[in-house]
Write a protein that binds this DNA or RNA. Structure first.
Length: 959
RNA sequence: GGGCCCGUGGCUCAGCCUGGAUAGAGCGCCCGGCUGAUAACCGGGAGGUCCGGGGUUCGAAGCCCCGCGGGCCCA
């Protein structure tokens, strides 16, 4: 055992340890040594490598994962610990577009899809390699050299295989779907991708729809999207609400009674007359004309009418008569088209520009057309009122363009009828915390809709769907080998555009089979990770490893990755693919706000590492409850550093003193610390195996700091040089705590292990040490309880000393303990030394006999302290005062204990004041001479006050 | 409008699932101590309507209900 360097300075050694791991291929060796262990399948949730710098919250995420895999490895499990990267999709495309200065898909096609895709690939690979470096620097021990990438050929093959399974199940369909659409990216966005909103100002108009064959009667509707009026086919009303016909000047308007007052006041109409009252259902089938039928010729062909909906018509806003355009609204589609069979108009193209079908508005961007449409309505007398509205409106999460809703042909997977099955599956999964799955996720699943899987983009897993242009025959391809069978060749790359070159003739009609141009939703990619990362079915490893034992991600991933995995697991294998799912919160800044680079409150990982190193960061985040949000604070980091510093000091102390061997009978405090040690190990083990990581870490740190450092080491300080039992215990503690420390603060643990504890026959690295076993026979809860009582006694006595202005340095003659506190009797010596009392007695009863006593009560008993100072005790106290000051001066002179000797001269007191304690003093401060009176010249000198006295002390260093 | 989470000294947070004696840490503050683990560390003290109200209970920070405030998700 070598002596550990005194300073805890992670910045100095962390890089060195990382190099040690790398140079010696520690993790490869570790994995190999565990290859026969029981399987533990951890699956990494793949982040987008759209930047090379991980967010501090992502570090938190990886720390949790790291602790879990380290724990199971230490339990001897063969842990699959492959990291993953979600390399496809819009985040990457948009970054590349920005880099290249592109604005539209046209730019990409002009540039060349092949070159563009190469740029995407390059960006993803560069960023993931940058991020990998950071994660490695943070001590995250995933298999970084061997990640799964969604862009790999083998991965796409697996993804295609899954796609074909879905096709074979009959759930993959193509049809008209009303979707959120980004007019800049020119693609559909899944519901998951619609989560960003901006406050925008839009027109708010009331429009009169003329009722057929009833001159001067109008249905009054309200809309904030005038551009959808050319696509109007119906008006929805609530069947059970009251509606009125109102006379305003010489016209009759139809609207909901409950909206009447509000609408008229907003429009500034003071005079109006209700002429008729009727139920919404009475309006069903009422025919009307679109006010723009001259401008939009297709409108003249539509038979417009009133339809009913009790679900989507509210009395909270508008007129109670809801303008309905099935081509531009989900509810509109559901009611007007699906229930009433009305046609779907959507005269808008992928860029959000009106098509020829929109007549007069052809070629205009929809938002720009708003003004003209309003003008046309006004000119023709159909505009009842025009105002403005400021509301939250969804925007594209990547490019921030306002989204539009439109009906488009998409490939989708029918899911809505699987709701019950999926909910059943999640009840079999263990959720940490439990409410995440049982409440939040379940509630969310109730709203389940079909999954639109196609994206009109370039960088993604191509949909393996080939379609005959002539007869519409569809073939879904489950892998490149099948592709070869069909077409006789395989593309050089499975991505667009190369895959699109593969064509063959239709087996049905001889027409041309071409691939549909779409790529898959990125959630398809990550959703198949549980088998595609294992290259299933080409490799059968998944059969051996399934199901995934553990995943953990931020709570935003319930509807993200947790769901996409569940969905794929259920669609393809009929069950949830995972056993335990843990969710964690977000990392916030010091003020509790989300951290964003653009907000300027972002703390770069590099800065954290520079100031504290990786282990401190790990311990800071891992000691917090994972499932609520976490504020990053620098003083929190300080706190973590202080704790680790104490831990470090504990090991320093052990290496310095726990050096003798032999064995004599253990004392109570020895049995106590061993009991605590084993209790701690048991608790940590239980907490880790149930993923209460913060409980485990805090339990461990409390043991190290409170039990070991603050109490045990203080108590055994005097014995340690002479009693081999203490040395043995401390070495035992080291052997059992280092593997636990290595789970949470691996760099520090390795440094300590390598520098001080690793023996010649020990494993090469601390990470190879197994999780310590629990020696149950050492656990004595009763003894631990008694120590708690002893601690209470010590606290109370210290408090009594404070109240009576008696320093701990001053020995007191006697302490009497009564009541249940006498249980602490076994710790008599501990109490005596910690309270600095000469004699401790435990009695059933005690009567105060003189005024020299003070007492204090606890619920467990009473404590009596004799504070009478005899001359002898005063001397002892005084001697401690002198020793302390000499030691202080020695330290200031930079003298080392036991090495440099000194001569001591004291003025201001007499030899008699110290009596026969002088030799003790000399012994303790390494003095060869102690004289009273003034010192010769050239000594280090200081004046002190000790109580009432003024004391001068001189020290001379001996060469 | 629906769902979920959170609310505990000045600050940051444990504890709540599984109710139990005087509600814990750390930081900060005040007072003090220790003296070779020492640019470290320790003790004592002040400081709390455990968001509010009601209920269950012998007993509620905890369980139930109703509010209030904050956050997240969904509409």
């Amino acid at each position: 055992m070598k002596v550990l360097s005194k300073r805890f300075s992670p910045q100095e050694y962390e890089e060195e340890i990382l190099r040690f791991w790398k140079d010696n291929e520690i993790y490869d060796k570790l994995r190999r040594s565990l290859s026969c262990g029981k399987k533990f399948y951890f699956l990494d949730g793949p982040p987008y490598p759209s930047s090379g710098e991980p967010h501090p919250g992502t570090c938190w995420n990886k720390f949790i994962k790291d602790v879990v895999v380290r724990y199971w490895r230490s339990k001897g499990y063969n842990v699959r610990d492959q990291p993953g990267w979600d390399t496809h999709g819009l985040p990457i495309e948009v970054t590349v577009e920005k880099n290249l200065g592109f604005r539209t898909k046209k730019d990409i096609e002009r540039y060349g899809i092949d070159r563009f895709v190469e740029k995407c690939r390059e960006l993803a690979l560069n960023n993931l390699s940058e991020m990998t470096k950071k994660f490695e620097r943070l001590g995250v021990s995933l298999d970084w050299r061997n990640p799964y990438l969604t862009l790999r050929r083998s991965y796409i093959n697996s993804a295609w295989w899954g796609f074909k399974r879905i096709w074979e199940s009959g759930r993959l369909k193509r049809g008209l779907k009303v979707v959120h659409w980004c007019p800049r990216c020119e693609t559909v966005l899944s519901d998951y991708e619609v989560h960003e909103y901006q406050v925008l100002t839009d027109p708010s108009i009331y429009v009169k729809f003329p009722v057929e064959d009833d001159e001067n009667t109008f249905i009054l509707i309200w809309t904030t999207t005038p551009w959808t009026l050319p696509a109007n086919v119906a008006v929805m009303v609530h069947p059970d609400e009251d509606y009125v016909k109102v006379e305003v000047v010489d016209e009759v308007l139809i609207l909901a009674e409950r909206r009447l007052e509000h609408v008229m006041s907003e429009a500034g109409v003071g005079e109006y007359q209700v002429v008729e009252k009727l139920k919404g259902r009475d309006l069903e089938g009422l025919k009307y004309r679109n006010p723009l039928e001259e401008e939009v010729p297709v409108q003249a062909e539509v038979e417009h009418k009133v339809v009913l909906s009790d679900k989507y018509v509210t009395m909270d806003e508008g007129t109670g008569c809801v303008h309905s355009a099935p081509g531009h609204g989900k509810e509109d589609y559901e009611v007007a088209h699906r229930d009433y069979g009305m046609p779907v108009l959507s005269p808008v193209d992928d860029k959000g520009v009106f098509t020829e079908e929109a007549g007069r508005y052809d070629g205009m961007f929809i938002k720009d057309a708003n003004r003209l449409i309003v003008e046309d309505l006004r000119r023709k007398g159909f505009l009842f009122h025009e105002g403005k509205i400021t509301h939250r409106y969804p925007v594209c999460w990547r490019c921030k363009s306002p989204l539009i809703i439109r009906a488009t042909e998409q490939w989708y997977v029918q899911l809505s009828d699987l709701k019950d099955g999926l909910i059943e599956e999640i009840s079999k999964v263990r959720w940490v915390p439990a409410w995440g799955g049982e409440k939040r996720f379940k509630n969310w699943l109730m709203e389940l809709e079909d999954w639109i899987i196609s994206r009109q983009r370039y960088w993604g897993t191509p949909l393996p769907v080939w379609l005959c242009g002539k007869c519409g025959h569809v073939e879904v391809i489950g892998g490149e080998e099948e592709l070869k069978e069909k077409s006789g060749k395989v593309p050089e790359d499975l991505h667009k555009p190369w895959v699109d070159e593969i064509i063959w003739s239709c087996p049905k009609c001889g027409g041309l089979m071409r691939r549909v141009p779409d790529v898959a939703d990125v959630w398809y990619d990550s959703g198949v990770a549980f088998f595609a990362s294992l290259e299933y079915p080409k490799s059968d490893e998944y059969e051996k490893l399934r199901p995934v034992d553990f995943i953990v991600e931020g709570h935003d991933q319930f509807r993200g990755w947790f769901f996409s995995l569940l969905r794929m697991g259920y669609l393809i294998f009929g069950s949830a693919p995972y056993r335990t799912v843990m969710s964690h919160g977000f990392m916030l800044d010091e003020r509790g706000e989300e951290m964003h680079k653009s907000k300027g409150n972002y703390v770069p990982v590099g800065v954290i590492l520079e100031r504290y190193g990786a282990d401190v960061f790990r311990v800071f985040v891992l000691s917090k409850v994972p499932w609520s949000d976490l504020r990053f604070t620098w003083f929190g980091m300080d706190e973590a550093r202080r704790k680790l510093n104490v831990v470090w000091n504990v090991y320093v102390f052990i290496t310095e003193y726990a050096r003798i061997s032999g064995e004599i009978a253990p004392k109570s405090e020895d049995r106590w610390i061993l009991s605590r040690l084993n209790s701690m190990i048991r608790n940590v083990d239980e907490s880790l195996s149930s993923y209460r990581l913060h409980d485990a870490l805090n339990e461990f740190l409390n043991f190290m700091v409170d039990d070991l450092s603050h109490l045990y080491l203080r108590v055994v300080r005097k014995r340690i040089k002479s009693d081999p039992t203490v040395s043995k215990i401390l070495r035992d503690i080291t052997a059992k705590t280092l593997p636990i420390l290595a789970i949470f603060a691996p760099l520090m643990a390795e440094k300590i292990y390598q520098e001080a504890f690793r023996g010649e026959r020990d494993p090469e690295s601390v990470v190879m040490l197994r999780f310590p076993g629990v020696d149950v026979s050492s656990i004595d809860k009763n003894l631990e309880f008694k120590m708690e009582l002893a601690k209470k006694v010590i606290t109370v006595v210290n408090s009594m000393r404070t109240n009576n202005k008696l320093k701990i340095r001053q020995p007191l003659p006697e302490l009497v303990i009564t009541g249940d506190l006498v249980e602490a009797r076994v710790f008599r010596d501990v109490i005596a030394s910690e309270t600095n009392v000469k004699s401790v007695r435990f009695l059933d009863n005690f009567e105060l006999t003189s005024s020299h006593w003070v007492d204090a009560g606890l619920s467990e008993g009473r404590i009596y302290l004799n504070v009478e100072l005899t001359e002898e005790l005063k001397k002892e106290g005084f001697a401690r005062e002198i020793i302390r000051r000499i030691q202080q001066m020695r330290k200031e002179m930079g003298l080392r204990k036991g090495v440099e000797k000194v001569e001591v001269y004291i003025d201001g007191c007499e030899r008699e004041d110290l009596g026969d304690l002088i030799s003790d003093i000399m012994n303790e401060v390494d003095a060869v001479l102690l004289e009273f009176g003034r010192a010769p010249k050239g000594c280090y000198h200081k004046d002190w006050r000790v109580g009432e006295r003024r004391i001068s002390i001189w020290l001379r260093r001996l060469e």
